[in-house]
Computed example of a mutant assay.
Amino acid sequence: MTKPELQPKPQSSHAPVAEAEMRVSDADRERIAELLRDAYAEGRLDADEHAERIGAAYAAKTFGDLVPLTRDLPAHRSVSFAKPPLDAPAPAPAPAAARPPMPPARHESPSVVAIFGGASRKGRWRVGAQLTAFTAFGGVEIDLTDAVFESPEVEITVTAIFGGVEVRVPENVTLLGSGVGIFGGFDVREQTAADPYAPVVRVKGLALFGGCEAKPRRGKKLKEWVRKQLGTD
């Protein structure tokens, strides 16, 4: 009696994924973006390099896309991503005192418009080099205290007609103004930040039978852009 032939064991279809091909999370993208902002504030990247790498960081799909963005920066060695093996046990819950990760900043339109109503821009959102606020018989609120600055200088152009625009900035940025009030008021409480690397916010425009007020919010400091210069984590 002949012995039956032994059939080869089928190979598993779940081959391990190479580290560079693993998908990244929003928290991973944000971690790299913060390192790039610090590098730009320190003068390690110029404006074009910073803009190009920031865009690539938020468009990254895998760890292989992220790693080259900080490879030539001193902080590269400290970048780590949590990638437990597929068969690893679930990690223990974080201690109650641990600070939760910040949510990704929102993409928003560079224009805020309010006509016979109100509009606001606040919370954790990305602000670029240009921002426009227009109101007619309404009100606009722009709060930059928790925003992520993606440019060293932000210019806000205001047009307020029978309405009002309110701008709030962190207390550790430079605030400048050059607006005109006609039968209205254009009040910018200017200040110069002690840190030479701090962003500059310029508020300009027109208030016609309306008003614009821009001032720092005490107790609120920008951390996303000048974190290292301020000595905070």
Rank of each mutant, 00 (worst) to 15 (best):
G128Y: 02
F81M: 00
E213M: 11
I54K: 05
A94Y: 01
S151G: 09
A56W: 07
E30H: 14
G55T: 08
F162Q: 07
P8V: 09
P68G: 01
G219C: 08
A60Q: 01
V24R: 04
D26H: 02
Y197M: 15
V173K: 06
V17A: 14
D38G: 12
V165W: 09
A47E: 09
G55K: 12
E21G: 04
A194Y: 05
V200W: 09
Y40W: 13
A119N: 14
D48P: 00
D48K: 13
P93K: 11
F162Y: 12
E224I: 01
D146W: 02
G64H: 04
I182K: 03
A56I: 00
D26R: 00
T157P: 01
K221M: 06
E5W: 03
A75Y: 02
E166A: 08
P91G: 08
P196C: 03
Q130W: 10
D195H: 06
F149P: 05
Q11C: 03
L131D: 07
P103N: 07
V201N: 06
A97G: 04
L206F: 14
P104W: 01
V17C: 10
E108H: 07
R126H: 00
V203Q: 08
W225I: 02
V113M: 14
G185R: 08
G231E: 03
A41T: 11
S12G: 05
A214I: 04
V201R: 06
A57W: 08
S178T: 15
E213F: 01
A96Y: 06
L66M: 04
L206Q: 09
V167Y: 06
P152L: 13
V67R: 10
K220N: 11
V154Q: 12
D38Y: 02
K83N: 04
G185L: 11
R124E: 10
W225A: 10
D26T: 00
E153N: 12
F63W: 13
P93I: 05
A198Q: 04
D87Y: 13
R227W: 13
Q191N: 14
E171H: 12
T232W: 10
F134A: 07
L69R: 06
L69W: 12
A94D: 02
V226Y: 02
P196I: 04
L206V: 13
H76N: 11
G123L: 07
Q229L: 07
S111E: 15
V67C: 00
L86A: 15
V148S: 04
E213I: 09
K61N: 08
V24H: 12
E166W: 09
A33E: 14
S80I: 03
A207G: 09
D143C: 11
S78W: 04
G55H: 10
V165F: 09
V158K: 11
F209M: 11
E42P: 00
G164N: 07
R31Y: 05
W225Y: 12
L230R: 12
P89K: 07
A57M: 10
T70I: 12
V79I: 08
A59M: 02
V127E: 03
A133R: 00
Y58L: 10
A98E: 03
S120D: 11
D146E: 15
L176D: 07
L206M: 06
E5H: 09
L175T: 00
T132K: 13
A160L: 12
Y197C: 11
E150V: 03
F137K: 06
I156H: 02
E34R: 13
A114G: 12
D233I: 06
L230Y: 12
E108W: 06
A47Y: 01
S80P: 00
T192P: 00
P91S: 05
